[in-house]
Design a protein around this nucleic acid. Structure first.
Lengths: 139, 139
DNA sequence: TCTACGATCTCTAGCGACTAGAGGTTCAAG
DNA sequence: CTTGAACCTCTAGTCGCTAGAGATCGTAGA
């Protein structure tokens, strides 16, 4: 039920030094220690760390991840607070899904044309380059 | 038709020093210079840079972005090469869309429960923490 | 044409998020 | 017990930017 940092590393797919870094950075809680001073972890830590890894791979910044983790950690805070934070992240997530959807379609089209012996022209750049209007981001 | 780095910065939503950094890093081609040595850009540069920004926001590493840009830049390379690279990115993009979809559903559920006066428990962590099986990533 | 001043130039240094290594301690299988 | 892999802390390095410093360019207005 209690396992080492190496085991946690294997379960979550996050390198050992990175786990220690996340603890120092406040993304992971300070782990309880064995008599000899080594960190001990449980299932919840593996889940939390796996979430952090996925969120990082998806391009979320540590600050955003912290907020998402807080949603889980403090369900007692007001509905309005949760709603505002969740809604903001929801909009962001939907933007990303839309962008990735366009990229997926373009990649699929290229592969399809390849199969028919044509070297189709590639519009990967145009695919994500347009839609500059989805911005409203840089003040 | 030819504009400055500041103008490019505004069009693409990327800071001026970052543009110079991308040039040094090889993500942007070396820009032609004015008589006085200032960089001059065209429409294609703005598109490319906007693509880079979007791809970075979506969590793609510079190396992956370089590959995607190369797909566009060298349509003359063999079908097999293009197919392999595009297929790999397609799988990755689909994984991300699936992950984001789960996160979106969970955020939407929380907001929905908020609206009905309940402070629903938050499962955002579980949402992305499971599915460790989609790994095959860390050797 | 001259001038002023904002934009651009290069260069160096700093920061956030890791990552790698040195040197020493702990744990657990034998 | 012993011993070697795994852990500890600490420092230093890398990558992707970001923020000055000090000098030069370019253009609008007198």
């Amino acid at each position: 039920m209690a396992f080492s940092i190496g085991e946690l590393s294997r379960r979550a797919g996050v390198k050992v030094p990175t786990i220690r870094y996340y603890e120092a950075a406040g993304l992971m809680p300070p782990a309880p220690r064995s008599d000899g001073g080594q960190r001990r972890y449980g299932r919840a830590d593996a889940e939390r760390l796996t979430f952090i890894r996925h969120a990082r791979e998806l391009g979320f910044e540590p600050e955003a991840i912290r907020e998402l983790l807080d949603l889980t950690a403090h369900p007692e805070q007001s509905c309005a607070t949760i709603d505002a934070i969740a809604a903001r992240h929801l909009r962001e997530v939907e933007r990303r899904i839309a962008s990735l959807g366009r990229l997926r379609d373009e990649l699929a089209r290229m592969i399809g044309e390849c199969g028919h012996g044509r070297i189709g022209d590639c519009r990967v750049v145009e695919t994500l380059a347009d839609h500059a209007h989805c911005a409203g981001e840089h003040p």
